[in-house]
Write a protein that binds this DNA or RNA. Structure first.
Length: 884
DNA sequence: TCGTTCACG
DNA sequence: ACGTACGTGAACGAC
């Protein structure tokens, strides 16, 4: 059967352009739109396997629509030059893929697509339209579906008739009426002023078309609305006409002309090479080889010498004479605390050696080389390398560059951090990914012999080749200090913390588990009784049916998949039925039991300790994250959960847990970078900041601040740090949006410096494409100029929040590095165990308690001097629970 | 594998 | 009128 794909070329090019940062290739040609277009094209062809295809473009400036409405698309900004110059390249791309393209004077791409869709559908051709423009929803019917780009280029949403009905409650053709009523600012279609999507949908639910709405104008709710409709009815009808896609374009070709020939990889490769699209190039190669049944990225040009005996090693050992080698240590699993070392490879860029670990054990020479600080090693994942070797008694030294950390600093938003991805991103010769070689999930199996040696050799060679590029990039973007002065030393500190681990009181954990289990069983029975039936309380679906269908409670909020049963909804429903409170409590206890009791139990090692992993290359802001288990979200807010902290105890008898936390670090950072005198004053005088904000915002004296006022001021302070919005604050405080906006206005009047900062940081993000922390850590914000409101607003809030959250992260990281050094210098036995974003946890022998308290406070407070003081509180106890 | 919920800062 | 609070990870059910 035939399958036709129709692509709205301009729309996809626009999407690609705004979704990706302004890339250029080495000759200075902008390529981001072409790149995005290519990604989308490859994905569509791969996933949909069309037999026929056409990419339609808009031709020229005017269309037949301008005859009836001259201002059509009048507000649209001119295509930016950086995009315009890429459009011919997009054409070239399509030629390389041998995909037909078409444009016709006087018509838009929509019209061409519409005509073909309506013509081919009835012939039994399955048709899929690809666009970023919701207007095309009107073309959907039983033969035609629409793939709408959502975020980026490759994230899409698929619409058929039912999906449109589910989302809008409209038939595809009513999309035109929707636009007639609400207009479309991007096309300068007026609609009826004051009518937006919400009102329009409400109207269409009752009167199915613009004409019907006009005919029943007297029955519409609200005098104002009636007036508006009467006054602008002509305009609404015109808008509808403009929004209607013309499906009778005189085309001189039929379906046959759109047949997709078998693709020509060489032609495509040639184009990608010219554009310098290394990743895509390797993907083409991969697919072709897959067809040729090897299924793997080629590594044929890597030469590797597999060394299996000491005598062979002696022959090969001269490579170790060099100052700098790349080193890759392979382990049996991701988690270094449970992993065994398999073997290692080294590379000088030309020669690669592979040594199985058994040989490393035998060879004192290699162990000495590993521990020699003067022998520089370039690695991927310094922390893991250090941990797996340390577990073998090898204190590796001379790790002088980490490719993983470098790639993270250069773009912390990038989620693909595997070595093969980094290599591809920086245009080096591709290597296979671990998944390709080892297999995925349950099928993962590390090969032996030749295949393993080759893969590891490819990795160390890749490290050797990409390291200089990354180093240069770090220097060029002023990130080198952050790399060598902060993240690399921190990696070692984290390695020690992880290896040290936290001791767990198993008996107490067991005890708490039994207690919670009883509580859970009791609640379960009570809920079944109140519901009159048994069901799975953990299933949102079943719970929703009980609450809203069976018990008839009002539906306050819905999710994509059904009723929302989240805590904030349930709290509102609690007064209406006693079951609700039980469910809330059941959820709370259930969470404690499964995540914290059972979850932690699973992670206790043979040494009675938990060794979390602090991930240094995950967050976009520079914070750490913690996994297996996550020890950064152990309960504290509710007493019932807080008791979990009783199981975290010192690993030596007579020692203590010491916890030190920064007080209000983010607001202090804000006071500093915003240079707001009023806010700085509050901190210099060490005021309770939420009370102070309440006094300033409400204009009352300290003793007049009510607890409500303080609570609201606190929420405003939170909101400010998150990148304030009226809606967000309204939700946080459960008040009207208007009221929330007034709070914000008053806040900005009180702290004008903060207002100036918020404006200027967004402005700066628009100009530079990124924001930075106080130490220069960057985060790129490509959607800051997006057309889509939601996407753009998100980027704006991120621009406001990231320098604050990120600077706080810089500060505590710096404190950790300095503290680790100071503790070593003073020969202290105390150990740093955990970091939880604004606090550090230690275990400390009795004799060191006083010294440690002073030292920790001093180093943390002075880690990075600001224009306001940093304040650190310390607490000591026999468990983490008591150190509060 | 995705969506929802909820634990933390 | 638009549609969100910032940053994470784990468990669970549904598909």
């Amino acid at each position: 059967m035939s399958k036709l794909i129709l692509v709205d070329g301009n729309s996809i090019a626009y999407r690609a352009f705004y979704a990706l940062p302004l890339l250029t290739n080495s000759s200075g040609v902008y390529t981001n739109a072409v790149y995005g277009f290519a990604m989308m094209l490859m994905k569509i062809i791969e996933e949909e396997k069309p037999t026929h295809m056409l990419v339609a473009f808009d031709a020229g400036k005017t269309t037949f629509r301008h005859e009836s409405y001259q201002e059509y698309k009048g507000t649209r900004q001119k295509t930016p030059g950086e995009l315009a110059e890429q459009l011919p390249l997009v054409q070239e791309l399509l030629h390389a893929f041998q995909v037909p393209t078409y444009e016709l004077a006087n018509y838009e791409a929509d019209d061409i697509i519409g005509t073909l869709a309506k013509e081919c559908g009835p012939q039994g051709v399955e048709t899929l339209i690809v666009s970023g423009d919701k207007d095309l929803l009107q073309l959907v019917d039983e033969h035609v579906e629409l793939l709408l780009t959502r975020k980026g280029v490759t994230e899409t949403e698929r619409y058929d008739v039912q999906a449109i009905r589910d989302k809008y409650g409209l038939s595809p053709l009513q999309i035109i009426d929707l636009k007639g009523l609400m207009g479309d600012s991007s096309d300068n279609i007026p609609g009826i002023p004051g009518v937006g999507e919400k009102t329009a949908l409400k109207l269409l639910a009752q009167y199915p078309s613009v004409e019907e709405v006009i005919a029943h104008v007297d029955e519409l709710p609200g005098k104002k609305l009636q007036e508006k409709v009467r006054e602008h009815q002509e305009q609404a009808l015109l808008s509808k006409k403009l929004a209607t896609i013309y499906t009778k374009v005189p085309l001189e070709f039929g379906l046959e002309a759109l047949q997709l020939p078998e693709r020509d990889p060489e032609r495509i490769a040639e184009f990608f090479k010219k554009m310098e699209f290394k990743t895509l190039l390797s993907r083409i190669g991969k697919q072709d080889q897959a067809a040729g049944k090897t299924g793997q990225t080629a590594t044929s040009d890597v030469t590797v010498r597999e060394v299996t005996s000491v005598s062979e090693l002696v022959e090969a050992q001269e490579i170790f004479d060099q100052d700098t080698l790349a080193l890759f240590v392979e382990a049996t699993e991701d988690n270094p605390h449970r992993a065994e070392v398999i073997g290692l490879s080294v590379s000088d860029g030309e020669t690669q050696l592979y040594l199985p670990y058994s040989l490393v054990e035998e060879s004192e020479f290699v162990r000495d080389w590993l521990m020699d600080p003067k022998r520089h090693k370039l690695v991927y994942d310094l922390k893991k390398t250090q941990i797996v070797l340390a577990n073998k008694g090898i204190e590796v030294a001379g790790l002088s560059f980490d490719v993983l950390l470098a790639a993270y600093l250069l773009d912390p938003s990038e989620s693909q951090m595997e070595l093969s991805d980094i290599i591809a991103r920086y245009g080096k010769e591709p290597i296979p990914s671990d998944d390709e070689v080892y297999g995925k999930g349950a099928k993962r199996k590390v090969p032996t012999g030749e295949a393993l040696a080759r893969h590891l050799a490819a990795k160390s060679k890749a490290i050797y080749q990409v390291a200089p590029t990354l180093k240069q990039e770090l220097t060029d973007t002023d990130l080198d200090e952050l790399m060598f002065g902060l993240e690399m030393p921190l990696s070692s500190v984290l390695a020690d913390m992880e290896r040290q681990g936290v001791h767990i009181d198993k008996d107490r954990l067991e005890e708490l588990g039994v207690e919670l289990k009883h509580s859970l069983d009791r609640l379960e029975q009570e809920i079944y009784e109140l519901a009159g039936t048994t069901f799975n309380i953990n299933s949102h679906k079943q719970l929703g049916e009980i609450l809203f269908d069976k018990l008839g409670l009002p539906v306050l909020k819905k999710t994509k998949t059904g009723y929302s049963t989240s805590a904030d909804v349930l709290e509102k429903l609690a007064p209406q039925h006693e079951i609700v409170e039980k469910i809330l409590h059941y959820r709370q206890v259930g969470k404690l039991y499964s995540t914290y009791i059972e979850g932690l139990k699973k992670e206790i090692g043979p040494d009675g300790k938990i060794h979390t992993r602090f991930n240094q290359t995950v967050t976009a802001t520079g914070r750490l994250s913690s996994t297996e288990p996550n020890l950064q979200n152990i309960p504290i807010r509710m007493e019932e959960g807080r008791r979990i902290r009783q199981v975290f105890i010192p690993s030596e008898p007579g020692w203590h847990i010491l916890a030190a936390d920064y007080s209000q670090i983010e607001l202090r950072v804000l006071a500093h970078i915003a240079e707001d005198e009023q806010l700085q004053k509050a901190f210099k005088e060490d005021k309770d900041i939420h009370t102070q904000t309440a006094m300033d915002v409400f204009g009352v004296a300290e003793d007049e601040v009510t607890s409500l006022m303080r609570r609201q001021a606190k929420a405003v302070n939170f909101g400010i740090v998150y990148g304030i919005s009226g809606f967000g604050l309204a939700r946080g405080l459960d008040i009207a949006q208007k009221e929330a906006r007034e709070f914000i206005d008053r806040y900005f009047e009180t702290y004008p410096g903060v207002k100036r900062y918020m404006d200027s940081i967004v402005e700066q993000a628009r100009r530079d494409g990124y924001v930075a922390t106080l130490s220069g850590r960057r985060r790129y914000l490509p959607s800051i100029n997006a057309k889509n409101f939601g996407e753009r607003s998100f980027a704006e809030r991120t621009a406001m929040n990231t320098p604050i959250q990120g600077t706080a992260a810089d500060i505590i990281k710096l404190a950790m590095v300095k503290l680790a050094r100071a503790m070593k210098e003073r020969n202290l036995a105390s150990r740093m165990l955990l970091q939880v974003h604004d606090e550090l946890i230690f275990e400390v022998p009795e004799a060191e308690l006083e010294e440690m308290k002073d030292l920790v406070v001093a180093v943390m407070e002075d880690a990075l001097p600001l224009s306001v003081p940093l304040k650190v509180d310390v607490n000591v106890g026999e468990t983490w629970y008591e150190a509060k």
